[in-house]
Nucleic acid binder design. Structure first.
Length: 469
DNA sequence: TGAAATGTTGGGGCG
DNA sequence: ACGCCCCAACATTTC
């Protein structure tokens, strides 16, 4: 009586509750991954995500092989019929998976669960990717939280998440394997190989995720709080893509940090450390997406639907390509394009610039990040953009407008980050590195500013004022 | 997890 | 010694 383990965004063997439940039955296990991007409409994985997914699947295949098992991979336009076919050929009676929380995925899973149960199959789903299920976190008046601090305080009051589950070392195999599509047939890798910078920056896979966590752990407290806002320094965890694809779980991270903190004698303060709080923001993002599923397209604050954006293809393109003439903005956009990732501080700066200096709709920025980030995550991306645009829950007010020069000066004082990603500015002295237009001899190969920030700021504030009428 | 404008304070130079 | 001005430093308000 074979058990199907349907992998989705939980591409790991450790701390995988669905896999552990299957293993606990003692029955043969068929691990399957179904690539069905059309079911994720309107947010099918973008180019950078697909690159990562290819390598994550290759890595999971290898991990399963070491357990004596396999990964059955299928490309499909209809997960349910693919599952039914695999169920037929394997004689499986039971199917398990770990939950997803994106609106399209929730709807899809619900349909599949109902249909399979109607056909007499046992189906069970588990939580593998959140510290708490979104529907369990409610205010005293039984409403979803819309402010981070009380949300996270409430989560903390619920105690610690369970300890992560160990990875199985061997898996029982079925008498007959279902057919599997070759990984290459999913065509996840780009036709024109633009991924050089990705390869240099990243090693996808669960083992690499744990190695990265190990490396980062040493610096997870003091160094993190001092360095996390410095894009020219590796001060952040860089775990986001692994978390997105489930190559590592938040419980594994939480408990690794807890053990380290206790070893260092940080007996209580660690739970309020900035890095753990970042896990809280991720939880908050999922909570909001689950409770307000239309926020991927619509502002949570309804009044902002009337914001007078000024769509402008040329401005948008200059931003995308990193040719705005503002060094910290251009550095960020080029780091994103070349490596599939951008430092979080710079995400805020570039997003503020697109929305406030260029008056482009935040949804345009969200779309671009979705396509170019290896850690593109619908929940975090939506929260981030609505936060910057001032139209989300607990968002920065719209009038908080980042000044790209002072942000650059403050967080990249020696211009290390700018010089790395905008090489044509390499020779500009520190004094002018964040405002090269003001230098005595401006660098001719670097673009002129497409807007004047002081002026753009005033225009943005005037646009905001129209909302109040 | 802003920045600019405006207000307040206090030390020092100076007549 | 005193008042006045300047201005930096900090605080508050406003967008």
């Amino acid at each position: 009586m074979t058990v199907l383990v349907w992998f989705r965004q939980d591409l790991r063997l450790s701390d995988n509750p669905a896999l552990a439940a299957a293993q606990a039955t003692g029955e043969p296990i068929v691990p399957i991954y179904i690539f069905a991007p059309s079911e994720e409409s309107p947010w099918p994985p973008g180019g950078a995500s697909r690159w990562w997914l290819h390598h994550a699947l290759a890595n999971l295949t290898e991990s399963l092989r070491r357990c004596g098992s396999r990964l059955c991979i299928r490309a499909s336009a209809d997960s349910l019929s693919t599952l039914r076919e695999v169920i037929r050929t394997t004689g499986a009676r039971r199917i398990v998976w770990n939950r997803r929380y994106e609106p399209a995925a929730v709807a899809c899973d619900q349909t599949i669960k109902t249909a399979l149960r109607a056909s007499g199959l046992e189906t069970t789903s588990y939580n593998a990717s959140l510290l708490n299920e979104p529907w369990t976190i409610r205010t005293k008046s039984d409403r979803p939280f819309q402010v981070f601090t009380p949300f996270w305080r409430h989560c903390k009051s619920l105690g610690e998440p369970p300890e992560p589950l160990p990875a199985p070392s061997a898996l029982r195999v079925p008498a007959t394997w279902p057919s599997s599509d070759p990984l290459q047939s999913l065509e996840l890798l780009p036709r024109l190989d633009w991924a050089d910078g990705f390869r240099a920056a990243w090693t996808p896979g669960s083992a690499a995720a744990h190695a990265q966590l190990e490396r980062f752990s040493e610096a997870a407290f003091d160094d993190y709080s001092n360095l996390r806002d410095r894009p020219g320094v590796e001060g952040t965890s860089r775990l986001s893509p692994y978390l997105h694809f489930g190559e590592i779980s938040p419980r594994e991270i939480f408990h690794a940090i807890r053990r380290l903190a206790q070893a260092q004698g940080r007996h209580s303060s660690w739970r309020d450390s900035q890095f753990i709080t970042e896990l809280g923001w991720r939880e908050f993002a999922y909570h909001l997406l689950y409770q307000f599923p239309n926020t991927t397209e619509m502002p949570l604050r309804a009044g902002y639907a009337r914001f007078p954006w000024k769509p402008d293809a040329a401005a948008l393109e200059a931003w995308r390509r990193g040719k705005t003439g503002y060094p910290i903005v251009d550095a960020g956009m080029r780091q994103l394009w070349q490596t599939g990732w951008m430092h979080n501080r710079v995400r805020m700066i570039t997003a503020s610039f697109l929305v406030k200096d260029l008056l482009q709709p935040w949804t345009q920025g969200a779309r671009w990040f979705w396509d170019t980030l290896v850690d593109a995550d619908l929940a975090s991306n939506t929260l981030g953009w609505q936060w910057v645009a001032g139209c989300g829950a607990d968002a920065a007010p719209f009038f908080r407008i980042f000044n790209p020069v002072s942000q650059g000066t403050k967080f990249d004082p020696e211009g290390r980050y700018v010089r790395r990603w905008v090489p044509e500015l390499a020779g500009v002295p520190d004094r002018w590195i964040h405002q090269p237009w003001a230098a005595p001899t401006p660098e001719p190969n670097y673009p002129q500013r497409i807007v004047d920030h002081d002026q753009a700021r005033k225009i943005a504030l005037a646009a905001l004022a129209t909302l109040k009428g």
